[in-house]
Amino acid sequence: MNIGIGLPISDPAALPDWARRADAGPFASLALLDRLVYDNPEPLVALAVLAGATSRVRVQTEVLLAPLRETALLAKQAATLDRMTGGRLVLGLGVGGRDDDHQVAGVDLRTRGRRLDEQMALMRRIWSGEPYGDGAGPIGPAPARPGGPEVLFGGFKPPALERVARSGDGFLSAAAPSWAGGLFDTVRTFWKEYGRDGEPRIVAQVNAALGSQDVIDDARAGMHAYYAFTGMSDQMVAGMLTTPAEIRDAITAFTDLGADEVVFYCYGRDPDQVDRLADAL
């Protein structure tokens, strides 16, 4: 089981410290959330900085809202980061659900799923080195990983789960173990129906805060603000793990479900949480 750290978004300047600590510890990846109309760092830019501050850990978007971005430029940015990190980029993608993000980006919220499917087809062509088309040639650079960086899709509904098998490499799950198993099984079923070889990579996301009550309160406040638009932030905050025993139990539960990685999201700003998570493991 690989363990990753989801980075806090409220203090971008502190993230290189988090990254260096994680790179020196037992962690496999560093992940960042994405929003447009919010006070958070842009994930591809931020992860490029963090990749330069590290040498080993993967840098992962969870999830990048691809429909908000121009496709050819996104493909070029992802290929560049993948190439310059020696294949350490994991591109977690999703559609998002906020009206204001789509309004500012000039994208129709109602067609975001279809747009993501179209984007994936084009990005796969670009990453393979084929000409863009309509008189335009290939768009480089070639990514380090043949065919492009590893692509994981997040979501809960059947179209999102089917997308994993149709055009992705794996699944990002933000569900608790009590109902994540059903999502994992659905993804694996689609994977077989599409005749894919091997198994989809499955990454579970868990919200956590380890430290004093001030650290936990800071994390809860940050998470509550981020998810206020859902109307379910109270329930989500209530599920945050706050003890080493809960951390270990979550790892065991997701291991039993066949997940490949668990990423613990830390909304609290105290970077000592990296060391506390390492100790909890």
Rank of each mutant, 00 (worst) to 15 (best):
N2Y: 01
N2F: 02
I3M: 06
I5V: 13
I5N: 12
P8K: 01
I9N: 04
A14C: 01
L15K: 00
D17H: 10
R20L: 00
D23K: 15
G25S: 14
L33K: 00
R35D: 05
R35T: 01
V45N: 03
A48T: 15
V49T: 06
L50D: 03
R56Q: 08
V63Q: 01
T71Q: 13
A75W: 07
K76H: 09
A78H: 07
L89V: 01
G92A: 09
G96Q: 06
G97E: 05
D99Y: 13
D99R: 15
H102T: 13
V104T: 11
A105F: 04
L109I: 15
R115T: 13
L116W: 14
L122T: 14
S128I: 01
E130S: 06
P131T: 13
A136N: 14
G137L: 15
P149C: 11
P149V: 03
P158C: 04
A160T: 12
E162C: 08
R163A: 15
V164E: 08
L172R: 07
S173W: 08
S178T: 09
G181R: 02
G182V: 00
D185V: 02
D185T: 11
W191C: 04
E193V: 05
A204E: 09
N207Q: 07
A208P: 01
A209S: 09
L210A: 11
G211Q: 10
Y227K: 03
A228E: 15
F229K: 11
D234A: 04
A238L: 14
L241F: 07
D249Q: 10
T255A: 13
A259Q: 00
D260T: 04
F264H: 05
P271D: 12
Q273P: 07
R276E: 11
L281S: 12
L281Y: 06
